[in-house]
Design a protein around this nucleic acid. Structure first.
Length: 467
RNA sequence: GCUCCCUUCGUCUAGUGGCCUAGGACGCCGCCCUCUCACGGCGUAAACAGGGGUUCGAGUCCCCUAGGGAGCGCCA
């Protein structure tokens, strides 16, 4: 049974890079009929917060990346870690180190001066009796001094590390709390992880973890180190590149399906296919086909995908998302107009739901805000008569539907020998306040008869008298 | 500095020795459609980092160089 996990540390928001890793992990588990586990790595008590935990949980839920087990919290597993540390100590596979931080720094500097990788020199490795010192010791793992560790990475291929490059890492602090490289190992082992899919910044940690695993007599999982995501400038993706937290994307009006589709195509592809449903991904995704090189995040392409999903999403479903956006923007939608109807006509003219909400404000409320420039340009004296006429005809229209409205607009245009645009655009400004909207007939139809008539009348009062 | 990773259009990518005068997508630019904005359709420009090998033949295999990145914590 395949078991994968996502193991973020709750020290901030849920980053899109983390989401991509989680997605890969989740897809692999789903595809293999395995299980996906969520683990919160909160051993850094200084920086871990409940808000961050919530952000992770909320983000994963929003994206629909459901875990089968967990969330497990490392802070609740300290007894287990202690027990393993005691065992390693007893077996002579770990030892107390009384070196001062100052000494450690000196040692590192010395290695550096000798053009070698800075590391611990194993000073306390063979101590048989504790030295007389006030220093509370840390506990270090006895890393093998010779031989090599071969990592058969599903993405990076075979990577070989020499043990003499590795030092004896600290597995417990003076206060007894375990450190990262140790807790992951114990957890992955205890939780039966068969595949460890994580960011490639952990590739260098892998040989140490494998050594601990072997000292514990545990089996070594398969590894897949996924490259990180770059910003548009080729640097590691960070806040200064814009939104990096998944919740930012929710707020900004992106659909989960779009984000997921975008993220999966960053480093993975299936021929020339661009659009993938979740079901297709579960079927087609191949962890071994993930690129070993990093990829840059491209906002424009995400926007394109988002619009694609907006255009293809069920109106009733989209309406919920639009409602969320309207609430955020404090747009009152309680005037009875169906959001699903609005969504149908606005889908092809919005890349995000936030944009859609903003561009749909004229559908709500009674009053409309007239754009000064649009009024000046389109509501000129010459249009007064045709627009008045149009208004009357709309007011008298017995059957209020887009076809009938369409016919009336054309009729008035012909009557005054105006090109359609010459009457449609002033009408648009009159009923929406601006120059941009869906086709004028459906726009007028959706706004409704009485409101349209009221708005046109008001627009008529804005026309200057200088003719 | 050391160890490890990476390198096809601006970006995401196809490509697994001949099908490549390198394909698709986003974006850009142009044209068409058109009542606005869009959608859509069509089209243009745009890349194998450099150098050596191997081979009849290399984007594809090997080596070197250059460039980029990660790690080298009592952070995760």
């Amino acid at each position: 049974m395949v078991r994968t996990r996502f193991a973020p540390s709750p020290t901030g928001y849920l980053h899109v890079g983390g989401v991509r890793t989680a997605l890969f992990s989740w897809l692999y588990a789903r595809q293999q009929g395995g299980q996906f586990i969520l683990r919160i790595e909160d051993t850094d008590r200084e920086r871990s917060t409940q808000e961050s935990v919530n952000a992770i949980l909320d983000g994963m839920a929003w994206l629909g990346l459901q875990h089968d087990e967990g969330p497990f919290y490392q802070t609740k597993r300290f007894e287990r870690y202690h027990a393993i540390i005691e065992q390693l100590l007893a077996e002579g596979k770990a030892y107390y180190c009384y070196c001062s931080k100052e000494r450690l720094e000196t040692v590192r500097a010395e290695y550096k001066a000798r053009k070698q990788k800075p590391r611990y020199d194993g000073h306390c490795r063979h101590l048989t009796t504790p030295p007389s010192t006030d220093i509370k010791p840390v506990i270090r793992f006895k890393n093998p001094k010779v031989g090599e560790v071969v990592v058969k990475d599903l993405i990076k291929g075979t990577v070989i590390f020499n043990n003499n490059e590795l030092d004896d890492l600290i597995i417990a602090r003076p206060d007894g709390t375990p450190t990262y490289n140790f807790t992951v190992v114990v957890d992955d082992w205890d939780m039966g992880m068969t595949h460890v899919i994580r960011g490639d910044d952990h590739l260098n940690n892998t040989p140490r973890q494998i050594n601990i695993l072997e000292a514990l007599g545990a089996s070594v999982p398969q590894y897949a180190h996924v490259p990180m995501i770059l910003g548009s400038d080729g640097q590691r993706l960070s806040k200064r590149h814009g939104a990096v937290s998944v919740m930012n994307y929710k707020q900004a009006g992106y659909l989960p399906a779009a984000l997921l589709n975008y993220l999966v195509r960053l480093g993975w592809s299936h021929g020339d296919q661009e659009i993938f449903s979740i079901a297709e991904l579960i079927d087609l995704f191949d962890i071994q086909a993930v690129h070993s090189s990093p990829a840059a995040f491209n906002q424009d392409k995400l926007l394109w995908l988002n619009q694609h999903y907006i255009k293809t999403c069920q109106p009733s479903e989209l309406a919920k998302h639009l409602q969320f956006q309207c609430n955020q923007l404090k747009i009152d939608t309680s005037n009875g107009l169906s959001l699903a109807e609005i969504v149908k006509v606005q889908a092809e003219r919005a890349k995000t739901l936030t944009e859609m909400a903003k561009n749909s404000q004229f559908f709500f409320g009674n009053e409309v805000e007239f754009n000064e420039k649009a009024v000046r340009k389109n509501l000129k004296p010459a249009i007064r008569k045709p627009l008045t006429d149009l208004c009357d005809r709309l007011a008298q229209l017995a059957e209020w539907n887009a076809e009938a409205i369409h016919a009336i607009v054309h009729l008035v245009a012909e009557q005054y020998e105006l090109k359609l645009g010459k009457i449609a655009q002033p009408l648009r400004v009159a009923v929406t306040g601006g120059t941009v909207s869906p086709p004028i007939d459906v726009t007028v139809y959706l706004i409704g008869q009485s409101r349209c008539v009221d708005r046109i009348k008001r627009a008529l009062t804005l026309i200057g008298t200088d003719d």
